[in-house]
Design a binder for these strands. Structure first.
Lengths: 242, 242
DNA sequence: TGTAATGTTGCTATATTAGCAACAAATGCT
DNA sequence: AGCATTTGTTGCTAATATAGCAACATTACA
């Protein structure tokens, strides 16, 4: 439902901190303006406002980075979300498979990872460790897109080049459709020979969990079953929270 | 530095989601307006805007709760913050003391907990599990307030009743000053006979870690030393991230 | 040294917000 | 049940804040 007096400044301002928070290095306001599609002057002033309340900061070269307030926002959002808390222990079980274990959500046309655990690392290192990844090249991204209306997906990519499908948007939409029908996301990367599979989490969908790594064809079904079970467990635990 | 065109809508809008995210039950817009001190109509319209972008939602009784977008915001803020990831393993070490272990940050005059672990529970359950607690009654709150300018602290509590110091603001400010001088926060709760101690984390300060529970006087120094060591470790690890 | 990029702001027409007052719906109380 | 509050919500218009071009100083790069 669209409000009586919608507030575009709030929407744009949120987009700006979110874009800023995902960066691992200082960013300029012009670059953020290009990335977000928001007019430059506006971005600059929103950043200055964010800096004023401590959510952003400027380094000596006047580039922007997140400020101390981001810890507070993280704390609050984490509490309001509860997704990481709920999924943490179930995901722990997956880590013994010696594959990458991930929990991600969709932001614009990219996947943001709440949890990304590489084999051999501690669970702590998995928390918010990975930044953004193009949704079209991610199994989590595909299964999350598959949970949206096709029109939404199309408007999300309107006028954009789709990573991994540079020559054919149609092929990409077909792939999304296929993902929807089979109920899980599957991406194979040729260069690393790695397979990623993802299953949606939440009812309605709030994100997805994934397993990724080199796996043989006959192992895939086993992994998929395990993944689906964990996804179901997380979804059920989410219901209980509310 | 205050910007050329500061954006109050963004500031207020952020305040509203933050307040909303900390609630464990649905809240009305009028209640949020009272809590935040923002004019009612504005809060209502900001909430509707937040609902429009998925950060908020209305339940059947038209009360507001966080929406699915909060998971995305949590993911992004968590990545931008890095505090939980950095502190997680060091905090794990503290859990074997059989005391409550907490990591909190200051929001307005309250403490928001990134991590709050009760003895006997899993680390996962500690993630963003506890909502808000009055800073004046929290060791984390006291040590964080002690890291601020006294003027800031006073303006934070201007015209308010200070929880735990209902009869004397002066006594509270004295306590803050004492906390600053001794370099750690100490709070004793008479009803439960529990002691809480907290040490600041980050340089400059971004939050604090705490130990809490029943402890004998002669144990306090030992615990304090351990706590200081862990705080130092976390602070150093934070430096390395940037 | 020149060229192109960057962060930043002054300016004013324009669009947006502020916030009172009013409304209907829900809730609490008797 | 009925009355009195309290709630979420919006219409309205004066007052305000924003949009965004163009320009500036500064920095990176050739």
């Amino acid at each position: 439902m669209l409000p009586a007096q919608p507030n575009q400044s709030l929407i744009d301002g949120l987009t700006v901190i979110q874009a800023l928070a995902m960066r691992d290095a200082p960013v300029g306001c012009r670059e953020l303006a290009r990335e977000t599609g928001i007019e430059l002057t506006k971005v600059n002033r929103l950043l200055k406002t964010l800096a004023h309340i401590g959510l952003a900061r400027q380094n000596p070269g006047r580039k922007y980075i997140t400020g101390p307030g981001i810890h507070v926002l993280a704390s609050q959002a984490l509490h309001g979300s509860g997704l990481l808390k709920t999924a943490f222990d179930p995901l722990e079980k997956l880590s013994q498979l010696n594959l990458i274990v991930a929990l991600g959500v969709l932001w614009r046309d990219q996947v943001s990872y709440l949890y990304f655990r590489t084999p051999g690392t501690s669970a702590a290192q998995a928390i918010g460790s990975l930044g953004l990844f193009p949704a079209s090249q991610s199994s989590i991204g595909m299964v999350t897109l598959a949970g949206m209306e096709m029109e939404e997906v199309k408007s999300l990519y309107a006028g954009k080049v789709i990573p991994g499908y540079e020559n054919s948007q149609a092929l990409f939409f077909k792939e999304v459709q296929k993902t929807r029908e089979q109920g899980y996301g599957l991406v194979y990367r040729d260069d690393t020979k790695e397979t990623s599979m993802a299953v949606a989490v939440g009812m309605p969908l709030v994100g997805a969990i994934a397993l990724s790594g080199r796996m043989k064809n006959n192992e895939q079904n086993t992994y998929l079953k395990i993944l689906k079970n964990i996804a179901k467990e997380i979804t059920e635990r989410l219901e209980k929270n509310l």
